[in-house]
């Protein structure tokens, strides 16, 4: 990090990646006490903690982590719309995780191999993310190839979230990654997992007028405002206090 120094950190990219991790961590944290089986209480919390750790490093590259997390308005957040989607049932949570972790693993592997400002974080995070993706893959297989009910739920979840997946490959200022190539590998990987789970790749569009770069530009979906209201309420109620 010393070679580059904070002045050279691309703030927009740090916020984009940091907000993805922060928001998805928050959503996963909502599962605490509600998971379908005790092992998943541990696993979902573990993924949430890894993501929160990544978010803290990334947001600190861009400024003060708590000011950024708690005092920005909705329109200033740069996360993907995918990660802010409500948990839904366990199948939705898993589909969201499969889509996101596959993207994050490919992206961080590329960043880790480079010499840019995100290389040190990405090198550490990519190991965590590989586990997140494995976890999502195994559950996609279990649900897709489990019972009729689970197959149907998993199919609906994959379909519902499909339209949020194109945004991941929109260019982000300061993010030095070959996004078109990443997209091709993402599609290949997701297609492979869905196929092995006995699921078909959803047919709808992955991007469109409603979502092209939307979260990255600060345009979010309705549930996100409520999520932030809950997350920020206590911090904002005590201006200037330390915790």
């Amino acid at each position: 990090m010393t070679a580059t120094g904070p002045a050279t950190v691309p703030v927009t990219a740090a916020l984009a990646l940091g907000d993805d991790a922060l928001v998805l961590s928050h959503r996963l944290g909502e599962w605490a006490g509600h998971a379908p089986v005790l092992e998943e209480e541990v696993a979902l919390a573990n993924i949430a903690l890894d993501l929160l750790g990544q978010a803290r490093v990334l947001l600190s590259l861009a400024g003060d982590e708590d000011e950024l997390a708690y005092l920005r308005e909705e329109r200033a957040f740069r996360n993907l719309q995918l990660v802010e989607q409500p948990n839904g049932d366990f199948a939705h949570t898993i589909a969201r995780q499969l889509y996101f972790s596959t993207y994050q693993q490919l992206l961080y592997a590329e960043l880790a191999a480079g010499t840019g400002p995100f290389a040190p974080l990405a090198a550490k995070a990519v190991k965590e993310v590989a586990y997140h993706r494995d976890h999502a893959e195994l559950w996609t297989l279990r649900l897709g190839d489990g019972t009729e009910t689970s197959h149907e739920r998993m199919r609906l979840a994959c379909d519902a979230l499909w339209r949020f997946t194109g945004e991941m490959f929109q260019p982000v200022e300061g993010l030095d990654a070959g996004l078109p190539a990443l997209e091709a590998r993402w599609l290949e990987s997701v297609t492979d997992v869905l196929g092995r789970a006995g699921l078909t790749v959803p047919e709808g569009p992955r991007t469109g007028a409603w979502s092209a770069g939307a979260g990255r530009q600060g345009l979010h979906t309705e549930p996100f405002g409520r999520m932030l209201a809950e997350m920020q309420h206590l911090h904002r109620s005590h201006p200037g206090a330390s915790w």
Partner: peptide, 10 residues
């Protein structure tokens, strides 16, 4: 979901 700092949340 309401922890007042990221450190406390972790």
């Amino acid at each position: 979901t309401r922890a007042p700092s990221l450190r406390r949340k972790a």
